[in-house]
Design a protein around this nucleic acid. Sequence first.
DNA 1: ATGCAAATGCGAACCATTCGCATCAGAGGA
DNA 2: TCCTCTGATGCGAATGGTTCGCATTTGCAT
Lengths: 146, 146
Amino acid sequence: MQKRTDHEAALRRSGLKSTKHRTAILDILEQSDQPMAAEQVYLELGDQKIGVSLSTVYRVLESLLDKNLVTKLSMSISGDNRAYFEYNRKSHRHYLVCLGCKKIKAIEHCPLKNYEEALEREMNYTIEGHKLDIYGYCPACQEHEK
Amino acid sequence: MQKRTDHEAALRRSGLKSTKHRTAILDILEQSDQPMAAEQVYLELGDQKIGVSLSTVYRVLESLLDKNLVTKLSMSISGDNRAYFEYNRKSHRHYLVCLGCKKIKAIEHCPLKNYEEALEREMNYTIEGHKLDIYGYCPACQEHEK
DNA sequence: ATGCAAATGCGAACCATTCGCATCAGAGGA
DNA sequence: TCCTCTGATGCGAATGGTTCGCATTTGCAT
Ligand SMILES: [Mn+2]
Ligand SMILES: [Mn+2]
Ligand SMILES: [Zn+2]
Ligand SMILES: [Zn+2]
């Protein structure tokens, strides 16, 4: 976990004012092991006695997204139709999603380093990053199938 | 492109009744080189003089999704917040997305076959598939940067 | 042909997200 | 430290993609 001052610095570097809401939201997302919906972030702020309006949470998330401090997931987690956000660890993470219980596990190792470079040459693109989601059934859900 | 009868068969195999709306929607998604939003599908049906209500389009897409005949990629394409659907080619596709012009290119080769198998053993998961999106800048947008 | 469950049309409801506008607060300069 | 100005926030209303309720129609098995 980073120290608060790192988040303040990151905000300034991005040209965003450092506010208690923004640092708190970055803290919350950084400490979460799961991507979070705006409302979850809002509720967590409430638990921490940090008064904030839901629209501010949306606006903060959007500006953090603009500045690439957080990312927005492109998959729907639980079949519902809302957006999930995660702290942008520059070492990107990959997810293993259980199709049964919808639990999400982060995968540490990246199998795509070499592939990206090959692709850059082959397609003449400048590659900035990637997202990889792998779908399957966790051990518990395989058991439950029987 | 598959023949219509193939879509009818796929529907029956999935336990869905074969209707003109469903086969038409499968045809449209299969022939599209881009994921489509529900409304785009609806408009295309209109162009083809196939009268249908928008709620039916949503319901058809959802049942096709349940049966894995299409896939859903929620909110990532143009910054807007609606769901996009694509025909589920069993040979899954990977996308190369330009961060500049937002164009999406399909990538044919899959670099993850071996990795999936290793992951199955290591994590005790049953892997069903994966999605891979690679982000970067296309040749044209690199030019435009200068 | 008949019967029944599933599919559809239509409008209303839902709800995550966005907006408008008045007020407040962070950051830099005086 | 105080001022000033721009950007951030609160609050409520509006928006718009998606879902629902219910009456009607259609696919398909018998
Ligand atoms: Mn990777
Ligand atoms: Mn692949
Ligand atoms: Zn599971
Ligand atoms: Zn481009």
